[in-house]
Design a protein around this nucleic acid. Structure first.
Lengths: 213, 213, 213, 213
DNA sequence: AATGAATGAGAATTCATTCAT
DNA sequence: CATGAATGAATTCTCATTCAT
């Protein structure tokens, strides 16, 4: 639901999925290395293991590859996240765990995350909204988690503050990859996670006086 | 100090500076609109008001333009910041004022900031370090401010935490432009600033119980 | 007699004929719309109702389709013409009737005629003579009709003049389709036919003074 | 007046004209030989004596070349015609001379005429009207000549007949090139001209009884 | 210093044809 | 016989860069 249709000349749906996976996998590596614009369609085809003609049996334009890449990365992030997060129980600790899980996924998928956020801007006006929607969906996942703690009386936040907090979480996860060149020199994922959670939550939680997480 | 030399065929330094300013001004607008790769050197020259031949009298490659753009934006950010921040006196309030001033500058220079962070990755391995260094310098400006509060006993943070906090500040400023499509729909710069400062500081300041900024 | 052999991988002659008819029918529509070069073999196959693989079971190259199209149109023109023309009796009126019948067929088969004369030039040096021969055959049909009137003493023309007159008739029929964009705005088929016959014949017939047809 | 603007990146109008002439000259030869679609832009550039890059400094698309070719041929035809036709005096003989002059120009410019009428259909919907208008203009030149003889009482024709007669003349001129493969085997330009004029006029002129021209 | 015409390597995309299933 | 996925040569067009004037 809500996914942009990328037309293919090939009919076999299974095959389409398989080939596109190969294509996306190859493209991520290339995009990470050289960026979307400096990567040629021929390189993508070659790296994916098929001919340029075959590539174009599964997409319409080079930009389609970028869209598929972004789409696929979001799906992967979400799927990994869902397997790590238990959303059944409320509470600050659930939220903390979710944040940590999210940071972990960002850490594991650094290359993909980097590619997605660096190159998404090259999507056409038509494709971009689909990708932005996914970002909003992920953000609202955190909003819901935070809201639960608010509802449970563990946090005292207005709606706008909940929203902003969710954005902060999202961006701090991305920051770990964007600023890897400096952050990952000086911090481990664990220390980074610990401190960010502390900053995010301790200022706003009721049970403050003690500074521990 | 630490600026990459961009060679020019023209001798007159005054003229070089003038032409490059025109060129950068034109390029920022174009890059914001179409991105670095989709902007042609012809377009830059035309928008800057001179011929393609003249453009190449003042740069060596298209990438030089990007470097000059990034360089110039950093200088502008810093210069605006410095005129707003009083660094002579320590204290949490000074820090808060600095953060607010930084957010304000980011807000005023949204287009430029967007261009710089979106396109800097297209810089060559040779030019990139010069730009990253500027980012580090700006970050350490905040580090110093924070450190003063630590030294003055207003904050209790390890060196790594100071570093991370500075990064958080930097990124939150950028986030205001990156996520403008969603943030600026729901928040004003003032409310955004207020809340981010609250999150950043209240969790770590000694004088917590009261939730004011 | 005198038809170019287009090889097929399929043995069943009935089937070959059936498939080729489907293919030609589809191709005429496409060629009329987009021209031979802008029409793809895939489109032809699809419009004909079978797969690209099947198309190539019945032809060797795309040009074969064009040849089959031209060939088929000529056959259709001739067949329609023969059912309308009575060649048994001589006389000027027979000739006039034949011309009118020919113009009528051209009018009915406008699309096909247009395609044939516009695209025949794309035939290879090998195939072209077969098509030209058909044109010559049709021309000489008119030559024979005219010659009969000459032999019967109704017209006074040299052999070369008979030939040229036949060409004029042929071209005036085609002109009705070629220049449809202007002619068919200002004339009906009937008025066009009337006047052309008048021009063609009254100048050369013995019984001139009266200007009637 | 009424000419489609073909944009060029080059500013020097003189140069544009010169290069386009070279380009058209080269293209006519190639188009005659292989047709528009089978001729590549690289071939055109090479034959014109400049690089592919330079070619595209003077046109926007390949189709522009075709338009320039058609446009230039029409201009050439008209200019040659005007230098041969005296339009000051009326009379049947003036008309006959004009027809002969037109046939002569068609004969001299066979290659160009062939190219124009075979390939004009490949023009876009946007460019085609400009070319058709030229055809109409030429046709109405003959209309005017015929009308004069009508006005002078030498011919007795309705307006529609005048129009159709003009079309006949136009097409007979073109026919000399279209059907060159057969006509020019059996006729000289002179005999062709003589006979066509006789057919066209003798049937409609008042002074008929004697069949000579 | 300024200009802008010339260059050609390079990039995306198409499409006739083949061939394994 | 029928299918349609695979192929890659070929084509149009772009654009950073140069250099003669």
């Amino acid at each position: 639901m809500g996914r942009k249709q990328v037309p293919s000349l090939v009919k076999d749906e299974k095959l389409i999925q398989k080939r596109r996976e190969e294509m996306v996998k190859a493209a991520v590596i290339l995009f990470k290395d050289k960026g979307f614009h400096r990567t040629t369609t021929r390189e993508i085809a070659k790296a994916a293991g098929f001919s340029i003609g075959t590539l174009y049996e599964y997409i319409r334009t080079k930009e389609d590859v970028l869209y598929l890449v972004c789409d696929s990365i979001y799906d992967e992030v979400r799927s990994r996240l869902q397997s790590e997060i238990v959303m059944d129980q409320p509470g600050i600790n659930r939220l903390k765990e979710a944040i940590a899980a999210y940071f972990k996924v960002m850490d594991e998928m650094q290359d993909e995350v980097l590619v997605m956020y660096q190159e998404a801007k090259s999507l056409s006006d038509e494709a971009l909204p689909y990708v932005l929607r996914k970002e909003i969906e992920m953000t609202s996942m955190f909003e819901k988690l935070i809201q639960r703690s608010v509802d449970a009386g563990n946090l005292n936040l207005t709606e706008k503050e909940v929203n902003l907090l969710a954005h902060n979480i999202m961006l701090q996860g991305q920051m770990w990859t964007f600023r890897r060149w400096i952050l990952q020199k000086e911090h481990t994922l664990e220390s980074y996670t610990q401190f960010q959670i502390q900053i995010l939550l301790n200022g706003i939680a009721y049970d403050q006086p003690t500074n521990q997480v």
